[in-house]
């Protein structure tokens, strides 16, 4: 399937620079590093837990660049009042993970 990723190139650039600023190790950010950033959004912890659940596609407890972009995308949408989905819609799955 060839659906464009909902994360736009300019958003991806922004998320990538946040990713890099958090000091990824081996291209991955651990939960310890991502958690304070998501908590900064002031969203309820149960919402953030779901954001993590949806973003950590391989369930390894760490986020790579694309997974992190999904997390940030969901957080930004949630801040705009959009509900966080219960499961990840196909357009939100990074092309590298399909």
């Amino acid at each position: 399937i060839d659906i464009p990723w909902v994360v736009k190139p300019e958003e991806k650039m922004k998320f990538d620079s946040i990713f890099e600023s958090l000091g990824p190790v081996g291209g991955m950010l651990t939960g310890d590093k991502v958690k304070p950033v998501l908590l900064n959004s002031k969203l309820p912890v149960d919402i953030l837990g779901r954001v993590w659940e949806l973003s950590d596609l391989d369930r390894d407890g760490m986020l790579d660049k694309d997974e992190f972009s999904v997390a940030m995308y969901l957080v930004y949408r949630a801040l705009e009042g959009e509900p966080v989905p219960m499961s990840l819609p196909p357009p939100l799955v990074p092309p590298s993970k399909r």
Partner: peptide
Amino acid sequence: QYPAGGSSTNPFL
């Protein structure tokens, strides 16, 4: 690293 039980990979649980 994370507490046992539930989703151990989720830092928010």
